[in-house]
């Protein structure tokens, strides 16, 4: 780990020095520095988030005005998507320093704490309960979670292979393994959704008891992370189909995916089989 870190540092300081010398000597770089740099996409994305999350949720669940909820969601979501598309385009075209693999561990630290908080809540509720599972719990599936585990763990390997193919400048191999990873991720989310449907059908819902509360919130948050990971992969895939590759960004995406995979091992051991 420490060695990897040192390697990254060396590689990065070289890139930084190159960027600095380019900026100094290069006439275009000089002119560039006299303008304020702008990008409309951060503003577009945050407007989209404001509409699609707090406002749509409140219209639906607080004020019970479904039409307004659909409207805010319908405006907000395209804004977010457009913002991300524009952002990715700019990011691929610009002179990015490729620092994202160094930043991703900090983000993962924050993400890990979200899951830790949910697990801590679950542990407290469970250990303080007079009986477990509490009344109203249905039999959870035993086989499907194992299949899901196999799918997610193998997707961690496939994204690793994709990364190695990219490092070896094998563009087609990279695309192939990236698509396999996305397919595995989609299969995982599909199984998760089918399982939710079935449990809710049997009467095990958010409000059944403490177990259902923990079950749906933990598996739901994890599935949301898988969906975000898939979104990042699509943002890698679409430009890559047109030959625009980004190695540091691929590395960060893969780091994030490994993290989501590791969290799943906790989910499956704590929520399903304990």
């Amino acid at each position: 780990m420490a060695q990897q870190r040192a390697e990254f540092d060396r590689e990065f300081s070289g890139r930084l020095a190159a960027a600095a010398s380019q900026g100094e000597g290069h006439a275009a770089g000089e002119a560039h520095a006299h303008e304020w740099e702008t990008s409309p996409w951060p503003l577009v994305i945050s407007a989209g988030i404001l509409l699609a999350l707090p406002l749509a949720f409140s219209f639906r669940f607080v004020y019970e005005q479904p039409l307004a909820a659909v409207l805010t969601l319908g405006i907000g979501t395209p804004l977010i998507v457009a913002g991300i598309v524009g952002w990715v385009r700019e990011g691929l075209g610009g002179e990015a320093l490729g620092l994202s693999p160094a930043a991703m561990p900090w983000f993962i630290l924050a993400e890990a704490l979200i899951f830790l908080s949910f697990f801590a809540t679950y542990w407290v509720m469970r250990l303080a309960a007079p009986e477990w599972p509490p009344a109203g719990t249905v039999a959870l599936p035993r086989v499907v979670p194992l299949v899901m585990t196999a799918i997610l763990v193998s997707s961690s390997f496939t994204i690793h292979v994709a990364e190695a193919r990219l490092a070896a400048s094998d563009q087609r191999g990279f695309l192939r393994w990236l698509v396999v990873t996305i397919a595995l991720g989609v299969a995982f989310v599909g199984l998760s959704a089918a399982e939710w449907r079935e449990l809710m059908h049997e009467g095990f819902t958010f409000s059944t008891n403490a177990y259902s509360t923990a079950f749906f919130s933990i598996t739901g948050f994890h599935a949301a992370h898988v969906v975000v990971g898939l979104g990042i992969f699509v943002a890698l895939l679409l430009p890559a189909l047109r030959g625009r590759l980004n190695e540091p960004f691929t590395r960060s995406a893969s780091l994030y995916w490994h993290f989501v995979d590791i969290v799943w091992l906790f989910v499956v051991s704590q929520v399903y089989y304990w």
Partner: peptide, 21 residues
């Protein structure tokens, strides 16, 4: 911060989605 975020999310779910945290 993520811990606070989780806490207020649970609050939101409890009040509006019927969870029992």
């Amino acid at each position: 911060v993520p811990v606070l975020g989780t806490a207020v999310t649970m609050l939101l779910f409890d009040k509006y989605l019927g969870t029992t945290f």
